[in-house]
C-alpha cells in the first residue's frame, strides 16, 4: 500500500518538487526521451491520422497533392451515410458478441492450460506441449476446408459457434505459450507454501497464480479480443446471412470490387477502430496495477 502511495505521489508531484527531485542529468535524459518518443510517435500515427482525415473528406479530396491533412470542410455526412447504408449498429453488436464471448473463453481456458504446462508435473507434458506449439506451425489454409466440413456436420454454419467455441477449448497455442512463459517466472516457493497449508491446485491457480499474472491476462485478453474483432476470414467463411455479419465484413463491403469509395471505407474504419483505441487505453492502465501486485507479491 505504501509503495503504491509513493508511486502515485511521484507522478502527481507539482513542478517545484519535480525540479527538486530531478538531477540535471536525469532531466536532460527525460527530455531527450520525450523528444524521441514524440518524433517516432508521429510516424506511428500517420496511418490513423490519414484514416481520420480521409473519413471527413469529400471523395474528390482523397488523393489531392500535397496531402491535405485537415480537409477544408469536414464532411460529417460520410459518417451518417456509413452508419445507415449498412446496418452498422447490428454489425457492431454481432462483432461485440463474438469478441467478448471469445475473450472470456480464451482467458479461462488458456490460463488453465498455461498453468498446467508451466507449474504442474505430469507424464507426457512435454510431448503435449510440443503438440501445442506444433499446431502453430502448420499453415491454417490447409485446415480451413476440412474444419468447415466438420462444423457443417455439427450444423454450426451461419452461427457464431465456429468463431467462439474454439476459444473456450484451449483458445489457441499462441496464448497458452504466452501464459506459460509468464507463469513460469513466479517463484515456486509460493505454491509450496500453499500446499503446506493444504491448498489444492485449483486454489493455488485461482488465488495465487491468476492475480500474479495479471499483466499477462490483460495482454492475452487484449490480443484475443482484437483478433476476433478484426477477423475477416472466419466470419467470411462461416457466416452467410447479412444479419449475422461483422464489422470487418462491413468494412470490406464499403471497399467494393474496385476499392474506390475511400471516404466511406475510412469513416467505417474510424467507427471500427475508435472503440478499440478506448479499450486499449483502458487496458494498458492495468499494466501499472500489475506492477503493484507483483511488487507486493515479491515480499
Amino acid at each position: 500500500m505504501a509503495q503504491q502511495q509513493s508511486i502515485k505521489s511521484a507522478s502527481d508531484a507539482g513542478p517545484l518538487r519535480f525540479w527538486q527531485r530531478m538531477s540535471v542529468q536525469r532531466l536532460a535524459g527525460r527530455l531527450l526521451l520525450h523528444a524521441i518518443l514524440i518524433l517516432l510517435g508521429i510516424t506511428f500515427m500517420v496511418p490513423l491520422l490519414w484514416t481520420l482525415s480521409t473519413s471527413f473528406k469529400h471523395p474528390g479530396q482523397v488523393f489531392t497533392r500535397p496531402i491535405q491533412w485537415i480537409p477544408q470542410t469536414l464532411r460529417w455526412s460520410n459518417y451518417q451515410e456509413v452508419w445507415t447504408i449498412l446496418p452498422m449498429p447490428l454489425f457492431i453488436r454481432n462483432t461485440m458478441v463474438i469478441s467478448v464471448t471469445a475473450l472470456i473463453g480464451t482467458l479461462l481456458s488458456t490460463s488453465l492450460c498455461g498453468y498446467s504446462f508451466a507449474r504442474l508435473r505430469w507424464p507426457g507434458r512435454e510431448k503435449v506441449f510440443a503438440l501445442v506449439i506444433g499446431t502453430m506451425m502448420l499453415p491454417g489454409a490447409v485446415l480451413l476446408v476440412p474444419q468447415f466440413v466438420l462444423f457443417r456436420s455439427l450444423g454450426w454454419i451461419d452461427t457464431f459457434f465456429p468463431l467462439i467455441v474454439p476459444a473456450w477449448l484451449g483458445g489457441g497455442a499462441f496464448y497458452i505459450f504466452l501464459y506459460r512463459q509468464f507463469c513460469s517466472n513466479i517463484p515456486y516457493e509460493m505454491d509450496e507454501a500453499a500446499i503446506m497449508d493444504g491448498a489444492g491446485y485449483f486454489r493455488i491457480f485461482w488465488q495465487i497464480i491468476l492475480p500474479l499474472t495479471r499483466p499477462a491476462l490483460i495482454t492475452i485478453g487484449l490480443f484475443s479480443f482484437l483478433s476476433h474483432y478484426n477477423d475477416f476470414m472466419g466470419p467470411l467463411i462461416y457466416l452467410n446471412s447479412n444479419r449475422n455479419y461483422t464489422l470487418s465484413l462491413g468494412l470490406r463491403m464499403y471497399q467494393g470490387r474496385f476499392g474506390y469509395d475511400w471516404h466511406w471505407v475510412m469513416a467505417a474504419s474510424v467507427i471500427t477502430v475508435a472503440p478499440v483505441i478506448v479499450i486499449f487505453f483502458l487496458a494498458q492502465e492495468q499494466f501499472i496495477a500489475g506492477v503493484q501486485l507483483t511488487g507486493l507479491a515479491g515480499r
Binding site: L108, S109, L112, C113, Y115, S116, F117, L120, R121, W122, P123, R125, V128, L131, V132, T135, L143, P146, Q147, L150, V165, P166, W168, L169, G170, G171, I176, G200, Y201, F202, F205
Partner: peptide
C-alpha cells in the same frame, strides 16, 4: 499432481481432439 496436470490442460486437449486433430 499428474491428474491435476491433465485436468488443467484438458480444455486444450478437448479442443484439439474435437476441432484440430481430425
Amino acid at each position: 499432481e499428474a491428474v491435476a496436470g491433465w485436468l488443467f490442460a484438458s480444455p486444450w486437449l478437448i479442443g484439439f481432439v474435437a476441432f484440430t486433430m481430425g
